[in-house]
């Protein structure tokens, strides 16, 4: 529990904030799995002293660096851009580097994201996820010759697909989707987001092909609009809306 009162330390002058102060105690409950040690998973509990403004990732590092070196997780950038550390934190898919300790106090339960095989602790097999991504032809298709300069695109045309260019392939959406949990054939929200990014790009000519792929049994019509994906996305992408737009294009524009 908090030893010192939480809250922001105010600068002397006129109340500008430069972060909270004081140490707090955080209880971490982590689902563990290590095939080198045993066949089934188990829970471990750790208690650490930390700062309220620290990231949950910092807290996990404290465990790994000073209590249990065997704890395995992926991470790199530590500020929500590389997409390495999606995990289930208090039941919700989040990036550990984008959750602050003060937002989960006094305790956090941490588990691997669901629907992908767990390989060790918080590390899951990303291959099925990337296979889904690759299946939607995630690259610009344009067979006209390349002009000497840039292709022209108006700000409005660019804006049409701006939202889905933000995707960092963290898998938080796909592994929050109940359809994906139940059916590994479903390409999942992230793949559709990445198809969307090209389908609505005025420079791309591959929309028909991608829409055909997504019209198949494994594609967009599996989606039951539960909005878990949108809620999970750390980049604030309107994932469900993107999926709906693709569905609409299949139904009303192309076929």
């Amino acid at each position: 529990m908090a030893e010192e009162p939480l809250g922001d330390v105010l600068d002397d002058s006129d109340g500008r904030r430069v972060g909270a102060g004081g140490k707090v105690t955080l209880a971490l409950r982590i689902r563990r799995y290590n095939p080198d040690v045993r066949e089934d998973s188990w829970w471990d509990e750790f208690t650490i002293d930390t700062e309220p403004d620290d990231r949950l990732l910092d807290a996990l590092h404290q465990v790994k660096w000073y209590q249990d070196g065997t704890l395995a997780l992926r991470r790199s950038c530590a500020h929500g851009i590389c997409g390495s550390d999606a995990m289930m934190i208090n039941g919700k898919n989040r990036l550990a580097c984008k959750v602050l300790v003060k937002d989960v106090l006094p305790k956090a339960t941490v588990e691997p994201i669901r629907g992908l095989p767990v390989l060790k602790d918080l590390i899951v097999d990303m291959e099925p996820f990337f296979a889904g991504y690759r299946s939607v032809l995630p690259y610009l298709i344009n067979d006209e010759g390349e002009p000497d300069r840039e292709r022209l695109q108006t700000p409005e045309e660019r804006h049409r697909f701006d939202d889905t260019t933000k995707c960092i392939l963290c898998a938080a959406c796909t592994t929050a989707c109940p359809i994906f949990w139940g059916d590994e054939e479903y390409v999942g929200p992230a793949a559709i987001v990445n198809a969307h990014r090209f389908i609505y790009d005025s420079r791309d000519d591959g929309a028909d092909e991608r829409l055909r792929i997504l019209a198949e049994r494994t594609g967009v019509f599996r989606c039951r609009t539960t909005f878990n994906c949108t809620e999970a996305c750390p980049r604030g992408i309107e994932v469900t809306k993107a999926i709906q737009e693709v569905k609409r294009s299949i139904l009303f524009e192309r076929f």
């Binding site: 690259y139 610009l140 344009n142 390349e146 002009p147 000497d148 300069r149 840039e150 292709r151 022209l152 695109q153 108006t154 700000p155 660019r158 697909f161 701006d162 260019t165 090209f198 790009d201 420079r203 791309d204």
Partner: peptide
């Protein structure tokens, strides 16, 4: 090098006349 990235699809912000 920039034109090459654009040809490969990089979504640069644009001017009102459609240039990078």
């Amino acid at each position: 090098a920039i034109y090459q990235l654009e040809h490969w699809g990089l979504p640069f912000n644009r001017t009102t006349d459609g240039r990078i």
